[in-house]
Design a protein around this nucleic acid. Structure first.
Lengths: 236, 236
DNA sequence: TTACCTATCTGGTATATACCAAGAGTTTGG
DNA sequence: CCAAACTCTTGGTATATACCAGATAGGTAA
C-alpha cells in the first residue's frame, strides 16, 4: 500500500517544511487549513503529520500547533561537558530550570545503587531547554553521604562538575541504559507535550573509585531532539 | 484531558496484556472484537493500541494482528559479544539471515570513514531475529584493504570476531551514533512491519590502531525490541 | 497601566461507516 | 497428495462530522 494517499501527503508536506520560504517562524498552518489545501480531511492529514512526527521532522506543542523541528542536538551521555557548554558549542541557546529539590527515598534509585529501599537521597528535578524549546526533563538522586550540603548549591549548571570540584568524587564506574519510551503524564506536562509522545529515556548509575554508590539519574528526552554520540577508544 | 476514554481503554488493555491467562500465544483479539467488547469504535480502539505500541508493550506484524511484545533485549553496541552469544545469554533464541553480499561504493560509509565517494566496500546486509521475531536489519560496509576475501566467510556469526581473528585488526577507535527514526520502506519490508514504524538507528564508524578506516555499519532496530546498556570505567 | 474577561483559534477526542489489500485457512481440482 | 483457487479475517486507509478543552490575542473595565 505504498500508494496510500496519506503517504503522498507526507511527501508533499515534507517538501513544504524543507522549503525555508514556505512560512514564517517554523510554524505550520493549522490542520484545518492544510486539510483544505490538500483536499482531504483532518483525519487523513493527521496521519501524514504523525508520520512526519515519527521521522522527527515536526513536533507539536500542546494545543498550540505543529512546528518544524530544528536539527537534533548531539549529546554524549558518557561525558559531563555540562549541558550549557555542549548546547552552546553547537550554536544553540541552552536554558535550565530547577523544578524541585528535596530529600526523600526513591525505589528505582535505591535498587540501581544497591541501597536499602528507605535510603533517602538528595533529589533534584529540572527541565532543560534548547532555543526555548523544552526538550528534556530529568531527575537526579544523589547519595547524601557523598555530597553533604549539595542542595544548597546552584543546579542550573553541571552537577557532575560540582561533585568532582566540591567533594572530589571520581565517578569512576558508570552504567548507562537507553531505551525508547512513551513520555508519561508528569514529564509530558513539564515539556508541554501530550502524554504518550515518543521519548528517549537515559538512565545512569554512578559509583566512585571504591565502588561506593554516588548517584542515579533519569533523563526523559523528546525523541527527535537528540542524537546520542559516543566516542570510544580501545577497550574491546 | 487525562479523562479521555481512549486512555481508560489503554489502561484496561494494559491490564489485559499483563494477564498471562488472558489469551493464547501473545496474540491479541482482533480490533473489531476488542472494539465491540469495550463498546467503542475501531478508530478509538486503535488510538489506545497505538498508545501501548508507543510504550513498547505491543507490536503489530503487517496485517496479521497485534501481539504482546516480549521483554527488551539488553544490547551493548560498544562490545562485540556477538549477537548470537548475548541473545542466548539472555535466554532467548537468536537467528541471523544474510540477505545480500556484494562490493560497491556507498556514500554515507565513505563520508563517515573519510574516503573518496567512489571507494568500493565489502557490503553485507543481514536480518536478525530474537525468538523468531525479526527485530533488526543491518548493513555493514568494510574497507576491502583491511579484510581481503571477507565475503567468502560466514556472516551469520560475529563480524568483529572475524576481523580480529582473521586479519588481526584492533578496532581501536569507535564512533557511535544513536537516534530514533521512522523505519523506511526497505527495512520495514524486511522486518515485516509497516513503513514508518518507530525504530532506533545505531551507526558505527570504526578505525584501527593507526586510525585507518576499517568499517561502517548501520543497524535499524524495532524501537521496543531493545535496551541499550553500556558499562563504562573511568575516562571522564 | 494593569488585570480580567471573552471570543476565537488550535489541536484532541469520538462516532459511524465504507471499502481496500494482504494473510491465513479451507476447499477444490488435478 | 499436492497445488491452485477461493473465502474469510485481519489490519490499513479514507470520508464526514461533531464537540471538547487548552492557548492566544484582543478588548474592556478597574
Amino acid at each position: 500500500m505504498s500508494d496510500a494517499y496519506y503517504l503522498h501527503l507526507t511527501d508533499r508536506l515534507r517538501d513544504l517544511i524543507q522549503d525555508p520560504e514556505a512560512f514564517e517562524d517554523d510554524r505550520l498552518p493549522s490542520e484545518r487549513v492544510l486539510a483544505e489545501r490538500f483536499h482531504t480531511t483532518r483525519v487523513t492529514l493527521r496521519q501524514a503529520l504523525a508520520q512526519l512526527e515519527g521521522e522527527g521532522r515536526i513536533h507539536r506543542s500542546n494545543r498550540r500547533g505543529w512546528f518544524v523541528s530544528p536539527p537534533r542536538l548531539d549529546y554524549d551521555p558518557t561525558r559531563d561537558a555540562g549541558f550549557n557548554d555542549y548546547v552552546k558549542a553547537q550554536g544553540r541557546r541552552p536554558r535550565t530550570e530547577v523544578l524541585l529539590t528535596d530529600i526523600r527515598p526513591h525505589r528505582p534509585a535505591a535498587e540501581a545503587l544497591g541501597l536499602p529501599l528507605d535510603q533517602p537521597f538528595h533529589h533534584i528535578r529540572r527541565r532543560r531547554f534548547v532555543d526555548d524549546r523544552a526538550v528534556l526533563s530529568e531527575s537526579l538522586w544523589v547519595v547524601p553521604e557523598r555530597a553533604p550540603q549539595l542542595l544548597e548549591g546552584d543546579f542550573t549548571h553541571s552537577l557532575w562538575g560540582q561533585l568532582r570540584g566540591r567533594w572530589g568524587l571520581t565517578l569512576a564506574h558508570r552504567s548507562l541504559r537507553l531505551y525508547s519510551e512513551a513520555i508519561r503524564e508528569q514529564e509530558a506536562e513539564e515539556l508541554g507535550v501530550a502524554a504518550g509522545t515518543a521519548g528517549l529515556c537515559v538512565r545512569r548509575t554512578i559509583l566512585d573509585e571504591q565502588r561506593r554508590p554516588v548517584e542515579y539519574d533519569e533523563e526523559h528526552w523528546l525523541h527527535n531532539a537528540l542524537c546520542i554520540a559516543v566516542e570510544l577508544e580501545n577497550s574491546v
